[in-house]
Amino acid sequence: MPHLVIDRLSANYGTAPVLQDVSLSVERGEIVSIIGPSGSGKSTLLRVLTGLLKPHAGVVHVAGTQIDYGSAAALRKVRDRFAVVFQQYNLFQNMTALRNVTIAPTIVKKRDAGEVEREARALLEKVGLSHRIEAYPDELSGGQQQRVAIARALALKPEILLLDEVTSALDPELVAEVLDTIRVLAAEGMTMLIVSHEMGFVREISSKVVFMADGKVVEVGPPSQIFDAPQTERCADFVRRILRH
C-alpha cells in the first residue's frame, strides 16, 4: 500500500483553479520529486496536503486512511504525520534556532522539555549547526536558516517530509550543504515529496519525477524517462530549457 496517495485533487484560489485532477502516489521510504514551471501549482499542492488550503475535489490517503480536510480533528492528525519545509523557511523570527526546533514538540506535543532539547541539539548537529544554536533567524545565512527549518521539521518526527524548493532561495555555494542534509534523510528511509529545481539532484535522489504545468500533472516517470526521454512535448520543452543553463 502506498504511503501517500493523492487522487484527482483539485483546488482553487478564490475562483481561479490552481490544481486540477492531480494524482500521484508515494511508497513508504520513496522519494518523489515534483518539477514544473513556476506558477504550475507545486507549492499549492503541498499547501493542500498540509491543510493550509482546502481542496475543492479529490481525496488524499495517508497509509491507507482517507483524510477528511473538513474536520479539524482529522486535520490535526494528518498534520502530525506531515512536516513541511517551506520555500521561505518560515522560521519563527522571535526565537533562536534551538527554540524554533523545540517549540512544537514541547508546546504542542507536550513532551518532556529536557528530552526534546537533547534531540533538538542532536538534530541541529546533524544539519551542521551545533555552533549556531542560540542564533536568531536574522543572524543566520539562508542556507543555515533552511537547515534549521529542516531540523525543526524533523523534530516533529514526521512520517512524510514535504520540501518546497528548499534550495531555490539559496546562494549556489549553500545549495550543496542543504542537499547533503536531504541525502542523509533519504538514506535513513524517510518518505519525501520534494519540489525542486535542482535537476541533477532530482535525478540522483528520486525514484519518480512528476512534471506539473498549469495545475495539472502532465507526465510522471522515473528520472531516466523525464530527463532523457520525455513522452510529452511540454515536459521535453521544460527539461530542455532548464538543463540548458
Binding site: 498540509t50 491543510g51 498534520r79 513541511v84 517551506f86 522560521l91 512544537a104 504542542v108
Partner: peptide, 9 residues
C-alpha cells in the same frame, strides 16, 4: 509565520 505554526498543529 501563521502557516508554519498551523502546520505544526
Amino acid at each position: 509565520q501563521w502557516d508554519a505554526a498551523e502546520t505544526m498543529n
